[in-house]
């Protein structure tokens, strides 16, 4: 029952997140699929002129990115209507210009933020999975820990960062600790729910074969948990970036979060906007990498 609780929370995460990306994937795949289904049945389309091809490409782009395009149009319009000065609301040109003219300002913050996020992500995944396996092996311990894990999971990271900063100092070590804690909970609960997802028939088979607990965990339950563990990785990737940025924003003197904060303080708005843009790109890249890793690994085990 306690297992089901974590499982339910995790399962609630899973389809929701899965749907989001599936929908995006389907959107990505659809033009190909359309082409494949249309081409053989209507030969007229195969002799499509470049003009038609470009038209179809533009339609596909419009279908998939219309809200973003809308936003890009609405944003300058809104600035113009409200008559904001360029100092407060830098134009895209100012933002791009600052990145091109001062790359040295951005290189190290990006490297630091990426390193902290990736290091914390790996460490947090390791701790979460190992703890998950250990706790799964004892129903008593998992029963004792599940509600506590839930409570710790809802602690807002904004409350966690100041406390951890006072405990471990304002340095980079604390940033990593924060990311590890953030990544730990999804990894921990998804590992447990994944290990519990093994069907009864497979458990019966291993019982008949007389295999011990260690062999069952290693050969049956842990492999069964791999998709859940990889899901945890994908869910955690943007969370890790957010955690690093928030921690840097408040604590350490390095990283994109710090750049965001200090440039805002010094009223260098084009730099603040540029670091926000780069942080977003970093988060999207991290998410993309995690999703690719998830797909590759899950493909291999299932």
């Amino acid at each position: 029952m306690t297992r089901i609780d974590t499982g339910a929370a995790a399962a609630a995460d899973a389809p929701i997140q899965a749907h989001g990306t599936d929908a995006a994937d389907q959107a990505a795949a659809s033009p190909l699929r359309d082409a494949a289904s249309i081409t053989p049945s209507t030969p007229a389309v195969t002799r499509s002129t470049p003009f038609v091809l470009v038209g179809r490409f533009l339609t596909a782009v419009l279908l998939r990115y219309w809200p973003i395009i809308l936003l890009l149009i609405a944003w300058p319009t809104w600035l113009l209507v409200n008559g904001y000065s360029r100092a407060v609301a830098p134009s895209p040109l100012d933002v791009a210009g600052d990145i091109v003219l001062h790359p040295d300002v951005y290189v190290w913050p990006v490297v630091w933020t990426a390193l902290f996020a990736i290091g914390g992500l790996i460490l947090g995944m390791l701790v979460g999975v190992v703890m998950g396996v250990l706790v799964w092996m004892s129903p008593l311990v998992s029963g004792l820990l599940t509600p506590s894990a839930l409570i710790l999971r809802v602690v807002p990271v904004t409350a966690m960062i100041p406390i951890l900063a006072r405990l471990f100092g304002y340095g980079s070590g604390t940033v990593v600790v924060i990311v590890v804690i953030l990544v730990f909970f999804p990894a921990f609960s998804l590992t447990i729910s994944g290990m519990s997802s093994v069907p009864q028939s497979s458990r019966d088979l291993f019982a008949v074969l007389g295999s011990g607990l260690r062999s069952r965990v290693w050969r049956l339950h842990l492999p069964a948990a791999v998709p859940s563990i990889m899901l945890a990785l994908r869910l955690s990737a943007p969370i890790a970036i957010l955690g690093v940025l928030l921690a840097e924003y408040l604590l350490s003197g390095v990283g994109l979060g710090d750049l965001l904060q200090s440039s805002g303080d010094r009223l260098i708005y084009q730099r603040q906007w540029a670091s926000a843009l780069i942080a977003t790109a970093l988060s999207v890249i991290c998410f993309g990498l995690a999703r690719t890793a998830e797909r590759k690994v899950v493909d291999r085990v299932t």
């Binding site: 970036i241 957010l242 926000a276 977003t280």
Partner: peptide
């Protein structure tokens, strides 16, 4: 995927 901090400005 956009971190809330980045949206701040």
């Amino acid at each position: 995927a956009v971190p809330a901090v980045a949206l701040a400005p």
